[in-house]
Design a protein around this nucleic acid. Structure first.
Lengths: 250, 250
DNA sequence: CGTGTCACGATTGAATACAATCGCACGTCC
DNA sequence: GGACGTGCGATTGTATTCAATCGTGACACG
């Protein structure tokens, strides 16, 4: 599934893209904390490239919202206000529900038309391996690799959906969320991971409605889990119905 | 409100950013059709800069999903499959509902703390002018400038929300949607625009729930309008409830 | 002592120069 | 005649170089 971002196996990652992924990874998991200023020269030295690919990476990350830049003032790692977490989760729920639904629908169509089916099967196979890998981690002590596996799973489902636009959106949102509470993996990790297999099963069965429902529930549980743990119910935004529910007047 | 992206009035746009906005604008409104290959040299000539800022702009637009690049193969304007439209609308609804709610909540707090209130008032004032401008356009014959005004309004609300992350998400989604059916402005334009004033009124009143509801309804009407006009009900995704509705089990 | 000005180092923005890669037409060989 | 290898033009990727700007600290002045 190549959850690293690019999907073609034949393309060697240009330094610009490689650096971009590295920096983003450092931001989400590693030590690059919000607010820290990152200079192009330092990044260039760190990744053994010139400043040009670093600049391109920073522009891309700026568009993704992971860094903020001002002309002639440099770039700093942007910080996520914790009070945005709940909203991010709400958006993510709508997004991932759509992705799971599309993936399931595509799965049921995949057997007839053999076009690009090889690609689909490859991603599906990688996802299976990913699930097993995650199970091994969950069974062990050190849950530290779980957040990254989590992102890779969700991006894998997104890739199954076949929608590049929606997948790009997910990369932003899931990255931000994982970034927000990678520390909480000890609590939600085990149960949350087990839900992934359910979602994938529904996708395999081609049950779009079920896949959508399970994924929405999965994300929603993460949201409430996060809120109960960190925010402590600070956002009385209508709580459990994330949209108004009355519609169709148009 | 400076819906062009940068919010500080004191910063002069770097060529990289300027070119980025220009290209994106050309993609959404202008003549850059999906699938067309764009070479760096041509863009550099067109905007009278060197290739470097063009490359940075392309990397940013690639991250935003407006162009696709492969190493040593160049960049092409990405195309939005029409069948993603409905999902984009669903995500946008959740996103804009959150943005409107945040804006309203922030509005009610704005009078006490005078911090950055000047910024808020500036954006609010620009929005008022924008509404009037749009009304003038709607009253006239040529509705062509309406899509851009539409984006600017929604980005303005996003700016009122105070959340940079969510605003970045909106820039992608709203751009894509406006890109999808800027042609349909003749149909939905007039009524859709009138709804903007309602939303802004609710925000001014600080009524978070009402602002959220109105914005969600506004986006939802756009969605159904688009679906009835273009897709013709090809997506039986549960229709009018965009999420499962059962939650809170976690 | 506070304040405004200015010069300098550091850093970013952009342009030019060079290297690497791809697509394609041409030619050769079977 | 067709398949395959090759050379060249075009384009992208990267490095180097230079220009523009910002922040800061010293210093003179009121």
């Amino acid at each position: 599934m190549r959850p690293d971002g690019r999907s073609r196996p034949d393309e060697l990652p240009a330094a610009s893209h490689r650096v971009k992924d590295e920096i983003r990874r450092d931001i989400i998991f590693g030590g690059l904390l919000p607010g820290t200023r990152v200079t192009e020269a330092a990044l260039a030295r760190k990744y053994s490239v010139s400043r040009v690919p670093v600049r391109e990476a920073l522009r891309a990350l700026e568009a993704e919202g992971f860094v903020e830049s001002k002309p002639y003032a440099g770039s700093t790692v942007s910080d996520i206000p914790a009070d945005e977490a709940d909203d991010l989760f709400l958006v993510r729920e709508a997004l991932e529900a759509a992705l799971a639904r599309r993936a399931a629908r595509r799965s049921s169509r995949q057997f007839t038309e053999d076009e690009q089916g090889v690609e689909w099967r490859r991603v599906r196979k990688d996802l299976a391996q990913l699930l097993d890998e995650g199970d091994t981690v969950v069974a062990g002590e050190d849950l530290q690799p779980l957040p990254e596996l989590n992102i890779r799973f969700h991006l894998g489902v997104a890739e199954l959906s076949g929608s590049a636009s929606l997948m790009a959106l997910l990369r932003q949102i899931s990255g931000k969320i994982e970034w927000l509470y990678a520390t909480d993996v000890d609590n939600r990790g085990k149960q949350s991971w087990s839900e992934h297999r359910l979602v994938l099963t529904a996708i395999d069965a081609g049950d779009a409605a079920e896949a959508e429902r399970l994924m929405a529930r999965h994300v929603n549980r993460s949201r409430t889990g996060y809120r109960d743990r960190f925010a402590g119910g600070e956002e009385p935004s209508g709580e459990d119905q994330e949209t108004d529910g009355l519609q169709g007047t148009g």
